[in-house]
Nucleic acid binder design. Structure first.
Lengths: 194, 194
DNA sequence: GTCTCTAGTCAACGCCCGTAGAATGAAATA
DNA sequence: TATTTCATTCTACGGGCGTTGACTAGAGAC
């Protein structure tokens, strides 16, 4: 009644598409790529499976649209600052991880074709970290930092390891700080200083 | 001759079963639970799909047998020794792909029924590590160590991150040593000594 | 008011899957 | 040798999947 013109055609389409995308994100996250069926996504979004096909073309394309929406944090500054930024962003994601990037993660581990698509996103993240590390092996260090972050996220949110899933994020960060600092900013035994 | 009966029925069966199990392990690792088909496993083992069913009863059961065969490294001793053992076992697994344990992980994420079975295996590994760490938060520290190991393995073998996949294992271990030591054996800022 | 466009539905196709059960033929047993 | 056992194959079924294309109905344009 208060909204006499709530449903223009364009608006309706936009909403439906968003609803499908949202349902798909949740489905890919909780079931992985293979176990997610277009019918289930459609049903969760309250539409017909044919409509999903009509809007997104294929299951692959729907999946691509979902991971395309996953955000990437910004990292920079001095090595120590970068380490703290990494820890802070990890702390954030320990508390509330955006469903989209978990969908990315899970499907990546589940769907071979998805892994390569996702790794470009990860590579971009690693490049940001590497830029903040003034060492000859900055690339490798950044990759290890990224791998650690990934392992923590997978354990807590996907595997739901008892200890990590119930842990206080602050405790986890406290224990990880020496790790991240040693990787981003600490001299190694070769005597190089970073 | 020493082997006048090379193909007794029992022997033949044992061999065929082993071949199927081996093919299944590879398949579950590289494709995950859902994408692995009994037909493909059978074909890789050079037998008929019906035989796989006949020997293992169901796909679920075949999968159970595969993860049952996954080995768990032994960890113990002083904190520093434990850290070195963890690093050594990780070094091993960086060089030669631990097909079984990655199959475990990958399938765990696709197969809900398998998740609990798999996480008990991981929990056992973490418990071993925790036992070697004399700290109040040993459980959490062990979980983080395990998560880091997992992240490195996933990045190198599943995602095949450029940096990590091509890195010299010795370099990776060198960079990770301070991490593992700080988690297993180093005092934290609360002043506790481990 | 009529025509056009398009959001959304419906029924169906072809494919591949896990699985069942009968058939086969060689080894074990008597 | 005759009989039983069992490793192995073959054929088939029922089901769920991604995808298709014809269809309906209501909004927008003229």
């Amino acid at each position: 009644m208060t909204a006499p013109r709530p449903t223009s055609r364009a608006e309706q389409r936009r909403r439906t598409e968003a609803r499908i995308l949202d349902a798909a994100t949740r489905a890919f996250f909780s079931a992985g790529y293979d176990r997610t069926t277009i019918r289930a996504v459609a049903s969760a979004a309250g539409v017909d499976a044919g409509l999903v096909m009509h809007y997104f073309g294929s299951k692959q394309e729907l999946y691509r649209r979902v991971i395309e929406a996953a955000p990437a944090p910004e990292i920079g500054g001095t090595p120590t600052e970068a380490a703290e930024q990494i820890l802070a962003s990890l702390a954030d994601r320990l508390v509330s991880e955006p469903v989209a990037s978990l969908a990315l993660l899970r499907s990546m581990l589940t769907n071979p074709e998805a892994a390569s698509a996702a790794s470009t996103g990860i590579a971009r993240y690693e490049a940001q970290i590497a830029q903040a590390i003034p060492a000859a092996d900055a690339g490798l260090r950044a990759a290890i930092i990224s791998a650690i972050t990934l392992g923590i996220m997978v354990s807590r949110h996907l595997i739901k390891s008892d200890e990590l899933a119930s842990a206080d994020p602050a405790q986890v960060i406290r224990l990880l700080r020496p790790c991240m600092l040693s990787l981003a900013a600490r001299a190694d035994h070769t005597g190089r200083l970073n």
